[in-house]
Design a protein around this nucleic acid. Structure first.
Lengths: 228, 228
DNA sequence: GTCCACAATATTGTATACAATTATAGCGCA
DNA sequence: TGCGCTATAATTGTATACAATATTGTGGAC
């Protein structure tokens, strides 16, 4: 009985994961209300487990809980958007350097797959999924660096970045990301830590400057179809 | 009706805060079981709110939830201990620099009060409270830097550091911290960002090297008296 | 026609009840 | 005596019921 114990994930974890995915892929828009009854009915669980899921998402700043008013998909402010990218700027470049020093051929292959899937999703017109995969690329790098704690932080920041992009992305800059990821992958593959750190730093700056952090946003929409 | 709305904190928030404080002050030891019934009876609330509190603490890595087995005060591994301090090393020095550039006289006064309280707690022999205040000093610096997101991360890392100290602190090094905090405060007061960054960096290194991260620990104990 | 007060409705916050899983103790057997 | 099995007890996972709060709709006064 020495198997890895595989914690069969609880109902709330499943609901939280599904809602998070929907937010990452922009099927749930910032500001949308997540009624406990409604969500519970969709997933066929009671409000108890929905509440647990919503609390978990609230802790990740993906939803905002307003007392006696309910849960809403978070709408990061401009200040919060800047803060998220400041935090990423502190964490990710150095982590990319560590990843470059440790990356195995298997790691490189996994990252290459991520990029390929991302391109495929883009070609299929599924920009939501492409965005999600693009974020996963960053998280995977932290995992390669063997820094679980930092990886958790980056995962949260990437999630929040997804909401920030939903709110502040200016459409004119197209899909410049992919190439940045390609260059990063190459630096990782040749264990060039300095280059990886520098590339990541500029990649994050590019991302930040591609946002329009001047005016204020909004726009909810309907719920059930977004979750199917 | 433009008052700041003061969200009267929910029951679970109160329980979580109290439990977190008990952990910070080392009144709850790593590995101790937190039975839902028992905790609920202590605070006079139902298991529903206890569960919410425990989930929140689990998300901060202060307690570990084992499926169908209950909640336990977390026992960070040696690897996790190193990771926590690596993350702090990435976040805190730069944040201290920002804080030095922004600190107002009021901020300095608040920090000075923290230090004074910390010394008072030490003189009163309340090392648990002293340790908690020592951690709050770090969080306060992030708040001064006006980086809420990073401050949240640092708060979590400081919490986890408290558990790490409970497990791996080697008693022979006494209370070297206080002076480091004094020096930091002086750098902040004269807006010397470079010095603040350097001092924080070395302070964290000192902290890390004062730990014994070689062998493995344990030891639970009773619960109710720890919470009064 | 607009605004305010109050009632009706809906939603969340909490407690309790039941089901599922795990831990424990007792018993039989080698 | 020691090991393993079973039955019991204890604890957590989930669902439901009730209480508290916020939102919405209605009616009336100005």
């Amino acid at each position: 009985m020495l198997e890895p114990v595989e914690q069969k994930e609880s109902g709330s974890a499943r609901v939280a994961e599904s809602l998070a995915m929907a937010i990452h892929e922009h099927r749930l828009s910032p500001g949308m209300k997540l009624s406990e009854d409604e969500v519970g009915e969709i997933y066929g669980v009671s409000r108890t487990v929905v509440r647990a899921a919503l609390q978990q998402l609230a802790h990740d700043h993906l939803v905002e809980l307003k007392r006696n008013r309910g849960a809403f998909v978070a709408q990061p402010s401009i200040k919060e958007a800047r803060e998220v990218f400041e935090a990423r700027a502190l964490l990710e470049p150095r982590t990319a350097r560590s990843a470059a020093e440790r990356a195995t051929p298997e790691d490189i292959e996994i990252l290459q797959n991520h990029i390929d899937e991302e391109h495929a999703a883009l070609d299929a017109g599924d920009t939501g999924r492409a965005l999600h995969l693009s974020g996963m690329f960053h998280v995977e790098i932290a995992r390669i660096a063997d820094q679980t704690t930092i990886a958790d932080f980056i995962a949260q920041l990437v999630s929040r970045s997804s909401l920030i992009i939903a709110l502040y992305w200016q459409r004119r800059t197209a899909l410049c990301e992919s190439h940045a990821h390609d260059a990063l992958l190459k630096a990782l593959a040749r264990h060039d830590g300095a280059a990886a750190e520098e590339l990541m730093k500029h990649h994050l700056l590019d991302l930040l400057t591609s946002l329009d952090l001047r005016d204020q946003p909004s726009v909810p929409k309907s719920l059930k179809e977004a979750l199917i």
